[in-house]
């Protein structure tokens, strides 16, 4: 291999990469959080809802999980202005990622809803809990505990793979920044080596954050790795 790595220019522009990483992190967190709310609603409807609503959720899930995220985001990016909505690139990306994550999370959380022990639900009911209270105090802690690994993995998918789609609609998240910067001085390999490392660090921070959140909110003793 004759290529000589020259990282100097990358370090000069490191603050911009950090900005990109920060945007990636925010996008990932908000898309996942929004997706979790959508997914929780979707899973609750699939479990308790009347059939017309269930059909609606099923249609949404099938539509989203069977098309690429990029297509969905392009759809918003090019489609929304046609109906008179002028949203920023970031907003299109965030809405797109949220809707995308919401569909997958509906499926993941649905598995959690199904696996709650009926006896625990009945215990809650006979103690006088409403449906919302059963979900809050029995189903959600159960989900957080039993499918935590699936949730954590999916968060990483959103954070790393989901957000990088933004580069294609001009959002300067980490991948977008790397493309912008390296196309100025052609140090592609150096930039992407550093950016890969930054993604790993991001993922690590995110995993710890999620574990602490689970412990704090749901009293889940989760392992981080």
């Amino acid at each position: 291999m004759n290529y000589r790595f020259q990282f100097g220019v990358v370090w000069e522009n490191f603050p911009q990469l950090l900005e990109g990483a920060w945007l990636t992190f925010q996008l990932g967190v908000f898309a996942f959080a929004g997706g979790a709310i959508v997914g929780l609603l979707g899973a609750a409807i699939k479990t308790y809802g009347p059939w017309p609503l269930r059909l609606l959720v099923d249609t949404y899930v099938v539509f989203i999980t069977n098309t690429p995220a990029l297509i969905q985001i392009y759809f918003l990016y090019f489609g929304l202005p046609e109906v008179g909505l002028r949203w920023s690139n970031e907003a299109c990306l965030l809405i797109g990622l949220t809707l995308n994550a919401g569909a997958y999370l509906t499926l993941i959380l649905r598995a959690g809803f199904i696996s709650v022990r009926v006896t625990e639900i009945e215990a809650g009911q006979t103690l006088g809990m409403s449906l919302i209270q059963q979900i809050r105090y029995i189903v959600m802690p159960h989900i957080a505990k039993s499918i935590y690994p699936a949730l954590a993995n999916f968060f990483i998918v959103v954070l790393v793979m989901g957000t990088s789609v933004g580069a294609l609609i001009g959002v300067d998240e980490l991948t977008g920044q790397a493309i912008n910067l390296s196309s100025v001085n052609y140090r592609w390999l150096e930039y992407f080596t550093v950016v890969a490392g930054m993604y790993v660090v991001l993922t690590f921070i995110a995993s710890i954050g999620l574990a602490l959140l689970g412990r704090w909110v749901f009293r889940v003793k989760a392992r981080i790795f």
Partner: peptide
Amino acid sequence: AIVFQQYNLFQNMTVMQNLTLAPLKI
């Protein structure tokens, strides 16, 4: 109040939390 044959404590909570959840939150 009812107690069933199958144990149905809330598994993610301590004994104390099992006892106090409904009186406190509901």
